[in-house]
Design a binder for these strands. Structure first.
Length: 197
DNA sequence: ATAGAGATTGCCT
DNA sequence: GGCAATCTCTATA
C-alpha cells in the first residue's frame, strides 16, 4: 500500500449552493492532527429559505459563520451534548453549509478508539455527526478554522479518490421541517454511513 | 423569566 | 423501543 498523495482543494469547489457542493465533498479526507477520516455521508443546509437550517432565522450567534466565507469550519453543539462539524459552502453573498454525517477511519485509529470508548466495531468510530467529531477530536475550539489552509488544525484534503459518480441520495434525517429536499448524500456501499438508508 | 424543541448518542428495559 | 444528557434558540409573558 502506497502513501496517498494529498492535494489541496480549490476553494471554488465550495462556492456553489450547499446542495450542489455536498455530493462533491464525498470521499474527501478530513484530518485533525494525526487522525484522518474519509467523508462518506453528508447533508446540505441552506439559508433563510431552508426551514431546517440553523441560518433560517438569520445570523444568530450560533449560525453567523454560515454567512461567512466558504471553507470555514462550523462547529455547533447538538442536544447540548455532542459537537457536529460542517463545511461552510455557498455562492458569494449567499448562505449555507454541509454537515459531515459519517467518516470512514483512515489514520490515527488508536487515538480514535481512545476518544470513543463506547465504540465496539470500526464503523462505530465515525458513523454519525457526533461520533466523528469525538473520534477526530473536533470541538468548539476549531470553530472558524479555514479547512483549506495548509497547516490548519483541521483540514479538508483530496487524495486519489474522486466523489462517487452516483451517490446515494435521500432526504435529510433528524429534522421535522424541510423534508422535501433530497439533500442527504452518501457513498454507495460504504459500511461506515450513519443510519440505514 | 420560563418553557419547549432540536442537524444525537448511549444506556436501559 | 424508551429516555436522559443539558446547550442554543424561539415563543410566550
Amino acid at each position: 500500500m502506497t502513501r496517498p498523495l494529498l492535494r489541496a482543494l480549490d476553494r471554488s469547489l465550495l462556492e456553489q449552493p450547499a446542495h450542489e457542493v455536498a455530493p462533491q465533498i464525498l470521499n474527501l479526507l478530513i484530518a485533525c492532527g494525526e487522525r484522518v477520516g474519509r467523508i462518506v455521508e453528508v447533508e446540505a443546509y441552506g439559508g433563510t429559505d431552508d426551514p431546517a437550517s440553523h441560518a433560517h432565522r438569520g445570523p444568530t450567534p450560533r449560525a453567523t459563520i454560515m454567512f461567512d466565507r466558504p471553507g470555514l469550519l462550523y462547529v455547533y453543539r447538538s442536544y447540548g451534548v455532542h459537537w457536529c462539524a460542517n463545511v461552510v459552502a455557498h455562492r458569494p453573498s449567499e448562505v449555507g453549509a454541509v454537515l459531515i454525517r459519517a467518516i470512514e477511519p483512515i489514520a490515527g485509529l488508536e487515538q480514535m478508539w481512545a476518544a470513543r470508548p463506547a465504540a465496539r466495531r470500526p464503523q462505530d468510530l465515525g458513523s454519525g455527526p457526533g461520533k466523528l467529531c469525538q473520534a477526530l477530536g473536533i470541538n468548539d475550539e476549531h470553530l472558524g478554522t479555514d479547512l483549506l489552509e495548509p497547516g490548519a488544525a483541521v483540514r479538508l484534503v483530496r487524495d486519489g479518490a474522486d466523489p462517487p459518480a452516483h451517490p446515494v441520495i435521500g432526504t435529510r434525517i433528524g429534522i421535522s421541517v424541510g423534508l422535501d429536499h433530497p439533500w442527504r448524500f452518501s457513498v454507495p456501499g460504504s459500511c461506515h454511513r450513519s443510519r440505514r438508508w
